[in-house]
Simulated scan of single mutants.
Amino acid sequence: MTQQPLNVLFLCTHNSARSIIAETVMNRLGAGKFKAYSAGSQPTGRVHPYAVELLQQLGYDTSGLRSKSWEEFSAPGAPQLDFVFTVCDNAANETCPFWPGQPVSAHWGLPDPSAAEGTETEKRLAFADTHRMLYQRIGIFVNLPLQSLDKLSLQQRLDDIGRVQMTTETEKA
C-alpha cells in the first residue's frame, strides 16, 4: 500500500518570491513524500524574474510556477492540506482562510528578497540567501520522523525550525 504524499502550502503576501522558492525546494527535497504548493493573500500575478532566474540556474523546473491567491486552496476540490507555512511576516499576521482538515501550521518568516536594495548583484544575492535558508529549513522538515511525533511535539519542532537563524555569507565575513 502506497502512502499519499502530504500536501504542504507555503504562504506569502504576494506569492512572487519566498513562497514560490519554498514550493520548488519542497517539491525537490520532499519528492514522493510531500507535494508543495504556494499562494498569497494579495498575489502580484507574476513570479519575480530573479526568483525564476535563480531557480532555473539551480536546475529546478519552473514551467508550472505562477502567482496565485490562497483562495484556490480553500475552494471546493482543492487539495486537502496537511501543513501550512507562512514565510513572510505579513501573511503570518493576516487572517487566513479556513483550511479543511486543520493542517499543522507554523511561521518561517524570512526577509523579502524582492525588497532588497543595492546593486543587481546584491539583489540577486538576497534571492540566493532566501533559497539557501528555505533549503536548510525544508531539509530539516522533510527529515523529521513524522510518524513518531505526536501533534504537540511536531508543532514544537516546526516552530523551532522557523526560529533557526541562518547566517548569510555576508554576515559571516
Rank of each mutant, 00 (worst) to 15 (best):
Leu54Pro: 00
Thr130Asn: 11
Gln80Ser: 09
Pro49Val: 09
Ile140Pro: 00
Phe141Gln: 02
Pro97Tyr: 01
Leu134Thr: 02
Thr62Pro: 07
Gly101Arg: 13
Cys88Val: 06
Phe83Gly: 01
Ala126Gly: 06
Glu71Gly: 02
Glu120Pro: 10
Glu72Gly: 00
Gly101His: 05
Ala36Lys: 02
Gln80Ile: 15
Gly109Pro: 10
Thr95Trp: 06
Ser67Glu: 05
Asp129Glu: 13
Ala75Ile: 14
Ile140Trp: 11
Gly109Phe: 13
Ser63Cys: 12
Phe127Arg: 02
Ala78Trp: 05
Thr121Cys: 07
Thr95Gln: 06
Pro97Ser: 04
Phe127Val: 08
Glu72Asn: 10
Glu122Met: 12
Pro76Asn: 14
Val47Phe: 06
Asn90His: 12
Arg132Asp: 13
Gly59Lys: 15
Gly118Tyr: 11
Glu120Asp: 15
Asp129Gln: 06
Pro111Ala: 04
Phe34Asp: 04
Phe141Gly: 01
Ser41Ile: 04
Phe34Thr: 05
Arg28Gln: 13
Tyr50Asn: 15
Phe98Arg: 11
Pro111Val: 06
Asp82Phe: 08
Glu122Val: 04
Pro76Tyr: 08
Phe98Thr: 10
Gly59His: 11
Ala115Thr: 15
Thr86Leu: 00
Leu29Glu: 04
Asp89Arg: 06
His131Glu: 07
Phe85Ile: 03
Asp112Arg: 07
Glu122Asp: 14
Lys35Pro: 03
Gln42Tyr: 13
Thr95Lys: 13
Pro113Leu: 11
Ala91Lys: 03
Glu72Tyr: 06
Lys35Asp: 08
Phe83Met: 03
Ala106Asn: 07
Gln102Ala: 14
Thr62Asp: 08
Ser41Phe: 09
Leu81Trp: 02
Asp89Asn: 08
Pro113Met: 08
Ala116Phe: 09
Glu71Ile: 12
Ala36Phe: 03
Arg132His: 15
Val84Thr: 01
Gly45Tyr: 12
Met26Ile: 15
Leu29His: 05
Ile138Cys: 01
Ala92Gly: 01
Tyr135Ser: 13
Met26Leu: 15
Arg132Gln: 13
Pro97Phe: 02
Thr62Cys: 11
Asn90Phe: 04
His131Lys: 08
Tyr135Thr: 09
Leu134Tyr: 02
Asn27Val: 13
Val142Thr: 02
Gly45Phe: 12
Arg28Ile: 10
Asn93Val: 03
Ala91Pro: 03
His131Trp: 08
Arg137Gly: 05
Cys96Lys: 09
Ser105Glu: 09
Arg66Gly: 06
Pro79Ser: 05
Glu71Met: 12
Gly40Pro: 03
Arg137Cys: 10
Ala36Ser: 06
Ala51Ser: 05
Ala106Val: 10
Gln42Ser: 13
Pro103Tyr: 04
Ser67Ala: 09
Pro97Lys: 01
Pro97Trp: 02
Gln102Phe: 14
Gln102Arg: 14
Tyr37Lys: 03
Arg46Pro: 00
Asn93Arg: 12
Gly64His: 09
His107Arg: 13
Arg46His: 12
Ala116Gly: 14
Ala91Cys: 04
Glu94Ser: 02
Val84Leu: 01
Val47Gln: 12
Gly101Asn: 10
Pro113Asn: 09
Thr130Gly: 04
Ala128Val: 14
Glu120Tyr: 09
Lys123Cys: 08
Asn93Cys: 00
Thr86Asn: 00
Gly64Cys: 03
Tyr60Leu: 05
Arg132Pro: 03
Cys88Asp: 03
Trp70Asp: 00
Lys35His: 14
His107Val: 13
